[in-house]
Structures are given as C-alpha cells and as structure tokens.
Computed example of a mutant assay.
Amino acid sequence: MLQSAVEEIELAYVLYNVVEQYIESGELSLVLADWSPYFPGYHLYYPSRQHLLVAFEKVINALRRYQRE
C-alpha cells in the first residue's frame, strides 16, 4: 500500500509513524486529516507475567520494537 501511494497509484490508510518521513519530505500528503483517528500506541493487558506463552512474548517484543521505530 505504501509503495502504491508513493507512486501515486492509490491512497493508503496506514499508521502515521510509518509514513511520517514521506510526509515531511513532501512525497506524500495527508488527506481527510480531520477524519483520521489519533493512535497513541498499543495497550496490552495481561494479568500475570508468569507462564506467558512463547508466541505471546514474541508479539509483545515485536510491538515494543515497532513502537520505538
């Protein structure tokens, strides 16, 4: 989707931090900004850190890495 938007083929609905550099450089522009919801980040709740499934730990770590980028 992002590549198609940069090539002016289609619109893309993606997270702002994914396209921020393209917007700042002028390659892309926001459309319908008033209708774009603010996304402060991921929020996870899990009652205990004991005995987490390996797959769930990988999801948590991936989200942490993605949010820092």
Rank of each mutant, 00 (worst) to 15 (best):
H51E: 12
N61W: 06
E57D: 10
P47M: 09
E69W: 10
E57C: 09
Y66P: 00
W35C: 13
P40E: 12
F56Y: 08
M1W: 06
L52R: 07
K58A: 02
S36L: 13
R64D: 04
V14R: 03
A5M: 06
D34Y: 00
Y66G: 00
A33H: 12
L44Q: 03
R65C: 06
S48Y: 03
V14S: 02
V59Q: 04
V6N: 01
I9D: 09
V6R: 13
L63A: 03
S4A: 14
E7A: 13
H43M: 08
E7Q: 07
L63C: 07
L30A: 07
F39I: 14
K58M: 05
L53A: 10
R49V: 13
S29E: 13
I60W: 00
F56M: 04
R68F: 01
F56S: 10
V19C: 09
I60S: 01
E24H: 10
P37N: 03
L11Q: 15
R64W: 01
E69R: 11
R65Y: 03
Y42K: 06
V31R: 08
D34T: 07
L52P: 01
Y45I: 11
V59G: 00
L2I: 15
L32N: 09
Q67N: 10
Y13P: 06
R65V: 02
L30P: 04
Q67F: 05
Q50E: 13
P40L: 06
R68Q: 14
R68D: 00
